[in-house]
Design a binder for these strands. Structure first.
Lengths: 231, 231
DNA sequence: GTCTATACCGGGATAGAC
DNA sequence: GTCTATCCCGGTATAGAC
């Protein structure tokens, strides 16, 4: 508590590192701390000082790395999108027929996992968009890759003769909307949660079956209630 | 700009009214102004002074009627819920079988209309919940009447032998989630909107057909693509 | 009850020593 | 690059005249 030497207690190992690594390390520490704090309090309720405190740095230090809270969030968003792209490149090799339950389930499961992994950033960006034009403008970037891909798959289905409940683009919105909202309610929101909270597998199965029926009318394949866990 | 007589320009007719009516009138004016301003800027970006300015009243006057922004919002919410209850009492007489397309569509249409009528308050409450514990706690009240009713109807379906894609409670969450998200994207959000923006009728039809298929598997009734406008 | 004027405070952002 | 200390602004909420 005495006003003696300070600054080294938080991170002794920083002593030896060069300025460059120092900066990178602090920036990373701030980002990591921000994720933690956003998760607890929510983006909008978080003050700059909450972040620096959680990172064990001084308040003023923040501005050596970011111009403000939103810029930090943009950095987090960029990281997330980069990781997401990499994942798709890696694991999205085969052609799609969403009227096939296994393939549809693979899609749903991928979405679910991505949402779960990134929910803090996801929610923070959503919150930021409510207040900040700039983020509102960037939201499509977040959603539309999914939605655009989905639309293409649906157009393919339509060509194949499946009678969708509406235009592919609109159906894509309804479909991804349901997924998103369901994931949000299951994984994020506390309220209304205790009724109907499911395991990940059960949730994915429900979305898969619901989606399959909605898209195909349920006539094209086996009844949706089969176990089908091994896909 | 001169410091002459003021206060009467905004509402000359107020002169004659008693204190009581005065107060009621001002409170109402503030609420109405708030709705307008929330709609433009969003709840979170709105300052008390924005509301008073829009209502043509002085800033300090606000606190004669409300303790703060949230209390005003609570008043709006109460009004809305009261109106909603009245509507259900009035128009919800007959028994439900959601596997019947006409009845299902009636439900969807009712939801859609309620959302459209109240979207400003709806969105404001959602925003408030992000920042304010108190509102987060009240959100279930907003959603759960729909969801609880829906769950009952689904349980009824299940008893009737319809094979739902999951537990009634969970399916209710997915279903109302899809409706809500779709309505939000169609009626509120600007981004991602230009693709797939539909007329009200088309949107309701899409949700109806998607829901019907999802619930029943599409086997219990006529193909979903029929016009069926007259319900 | 409504108005104007202002006290007050949280918190973002900067200055300058180390 | 990091720290402490501080400035300063926007905005809420109150005081007090009419």
């Amino acid at each position: 508590m005495a006003a003696g030497r300070r600054g080294s207690a938080a991170a002794p190992m920083r002593q030896a590192a060069g300025r460059r690594e120092q900066a990178a390390a602090t920036a990373a520490a701030l980002k990591a701390a921000a994720v933690r704090v956003f998760d607890e309090r929510g983006y909008l309720n978080t003050k700059i000082t909450d972040i620096t405190a959680a990172a064990g740095r001084a308040a003023g230090s923040f501005y050596n790395h970011f111009t403000g809270k939103q810029q930090l969030l943009e950095a987090l968003l960029a990281d997330m999108l980069a990781a997401g792209d990499a994942r798709v490149q890696r694991e999205h090799p085969y052609d799609h027929d969403l009227s096939d339950r296994a393939q549809l389930r693979w899609h749903v499961a991928g979405f679910w996992q991505a949402f779960r992994d990134n929910k803090t950033v996801f929610v923070a960006v959503t919150q930021a968009a409510l207040v900040d034009e700039r983020f509102a403008a960037r939201l499509p970037e977040l959603m539309s890759p999914d939605q655009a891909a989905m639309r293409q798959h649906l157009e393919y289905l339509a060509e194949k003769g499946v009678r969708l409940p509406g235009e592919p683009a609109a159906v894509a919105v309804a479909l991804t909307g349901m997924w998103f909202q369901f994931a949000y309610q299951q994984l994020v929101s506390d309220f209304m949660g205790r009724i109907g909270r499911l395991s990940d597998d059960a949730a994915i199965d429900l979305l898969t079956d619901f989606s399959l029926r909605g898209l195909t009318g349920g006539n094209d394949h086996q009844p949706a209630t089969r176990p089908a866990r091994g896909q």
